[in-house]
Every structure is written in C-alpha cells, then in structure tokens.
Design a protein around this nucleic acid. Structure first.
Lengths: 168, 168
DNA sequence: GGTAAGTCGCTTAGCGCTAAGCTAATTGCT
DNA sequence: AGCAATTAGCTTAGCGCTAAGCGACTTACC
C-alpha cells in the first residue's frame, strides 16, 4: 500500500504522523510546500553564512544586489528598493542607514523631486557586491548539484509554473 | 538564442538583469532557489492569513500541530518542541507562555526529571488545531492546483531529493 | 560517594522587522 | 490659482526572534 516503508526525509515523516492520527486529511499538498518551506529556511541560513565573511547580512546583500542589477549608474530610490524587496519603508530606512554608515552606498537628493532620494552604490559597495554574488551563487550551485542538469531544469520549470499562479 | 523573449516570472526578470550587467555569472541555480525563496514567502503569508481567523499565528499553529501529530496524550517537552521547530529555548518559552495563557495547552512538571516540563494540548487546543490544520491544507491545495497530479508528484519527488541532500 | 560536566527551562539584552503616524513636497481636480 | 489627495522618507512603539547566561537538577566518571 505504502510504496516506501521508511520516511526518506523529514516531510515524509510528518506526513506519516498525520496519517496515523488524522487519516481523513489529504496531506498531499504538504509534500510540495512542506519541502519548499524547509528548503527555503535551510538555504537561507547557508546564504547568510556565505555573506557573513564579507560583513553582510542577507538582507543587506539584497539591497546591494538590487542596485547592482539595475546597472549604471547603480541608482534607485528607497521606494523602488522597498517595493522590489517587499519591505516596508521603515525597514528599508534601517538597512540604508547601516549600509551608508559602512560606506557601501550613499544617499543624495533627487534633483527632480525634493521629497525623494537617490541611493547609489559606492565604488566600495560595487566591489563588495560583485564578490558577494559569486559566493552566494556558489553555495546555491553546490546544493543544486544533488540533481542532474535535466532534473534541475524540470524543477525550475515546475516552480516557475507554481510561482506564476501564486503571485497574482 | 534566448528561448523566451519576455520574462515569465519575477525570477526570469532578475536572471535577465544579471545577464545584462554580469554576463560572466552562472545564475542557473537561482532559477531553482530564487523561486523557492519567493514561494516560501508568498505561501507563508497565506498560511498566516489562513490561521489568523482562529486567533493563531503560524508559529503558534506549528507548536499545536507538533503536539497533535505526536498522538495521544498530546504531550511533549519544551525541549522536544524547540528541537523539532528549530527554535531556541527562549523563543519556545515565549510561544508556550502565549498558548498557555490562551488555554490551548498546559505545562506540568515531568515526574521523571524535576528539571523538565511536559507540555500537553488541552481539549480546547485539540479542537482548535484540528480546525486550523484543515484550513491550512486547503490553502496549500488551492495553490497547488496550478499543477496537475503528475506534475505535483514530480515536483514533490525532485524537492525531496534536494532536501535530503541539503539537510545533512 | 563526591565531583565535574551536561541538560533542563527561563530571563535578559539586542536586533530587525511591521504598523501607524509624522512632516514636507507633489499631483490632480475644479 | 487654490485646495484636497497622494506620495516621499523617516520616526516610534511593539513584537518575536536569537545569543548569552542563570540556577536547578541529572548523569557520568573516578
């Protein structure tokens, strides 16, 4: 009946526990989302550790990376940053304060809107994020090496499909 | 060259931005983990909303659900709970305080170890978690309905493989 | 049997976030 | 032109977490 005698990962174990105490429940969706939650947490911790030697938290890296991805002149407004990173303006103010103090970016007045600011990567910030993105990707590649190329593509495609339907 | 002219989801957009400013980077692993991070966040928010009408946060639900899954007599130690939920003992103390105040569980001395406690679901806690788990699973099933059964199985299998290799 | 090490749950300080609200500046309506 | 509504970034209060450390108790070793 049950194709696997013993649980193969922590989510299998949880599903089996539920089956024992609440056999009426349909826990099939947990097989996907339970694993997504755990993978997100585990990989998030690893990314944190990957950036730590460079003196960056993951949230700080995200700010620098968003500016880097924007291309020259590496400038965005606090509003654009907080929208992209799904962060309140309060949280963004804190991150920018810290990164500005560390000399990784600078805030300057927006010439076209006296309410607004422009946040720009410094030379130092550009160097640092270019090193950080490499070590972050290395950690992700290492974890993904558990799958072969075809499996990885298939996984990415299925996740895209799921993400597209949920972010709407 | 590029099989898709326009990005199909936010992660495709980010990957394209990186390709424009840092074409030397191998961002293939981001196609998987970027989506896992975003899905985890989006679904986490939805789960939070699913439990909110019952007066539970997601973290509080997790405590009750762990006790529920343990089966009769729905009893575990704070240590077992904090280990299962990957939480420090300080965090667990706070959650237990709140749930105990709400009458959903009770703490009693461990008869075999005078240092320890036993945390037990009350009748009220058992009722509540049995309702909560249903609405949480409904939210997950709804999101997963973007995929057909075969795709969902395939996705669960690939995620299991990945999770097994990272949690070690 | 006595002592050193480990483990129990809890407390406290500090951190980063959100939600709500502020002032200043801009935009839209009439 | 003049006023209302919106938007900019920042501040504050509150929440939940971690890290560090506490006293109480148990276990392991000689």
């Amino acid at each position: 009946m049950n194709p696997q005698a013993h649980p193969q990962d922590p989510v299998d174990a949880i599903v089996e526990q539920w089956a024992a105490v609440r056999p009426d429940l349909d826990t099939s969706a947990m097989e996907v989302f339970g694993r997504i939650f755990r993978l997100s947490r585990a990989m998030g911790d690893r990314m944190e550790k990957a950036y730590a030697p460079l003196g960056l938290s993951r949230g700080e890296f995200d700010v620098l990376a968003t500016l880097r991805r924007a291309g020259e002149p590496y400038t965005l407004s606090p509003r654009e940053l907080s929208a992209t990173l799904m962060l309140t303006t309060g949280g963004m103010t804190g991150r920018l304060d810290k990164l500005e103090r560390a000399g990784l970016l600078r805030r300057s007045p927006d010439p076209h809107d006296r309410r607004g600011l422009r946040v720009t990567l410094t030379e130092q910030g550009l160097d640092l994020v270019d090193r950080a993105v490499g070590s972050g990707l290395a950690v992700e590649r290492e974890a993904l090496s558990a799958l072969n190329a075809q499996q990885a593509d298939q996984l990415a495609d299925l996740l895209r499909e799921l993400l597209r339907s949920t972010e709407r």
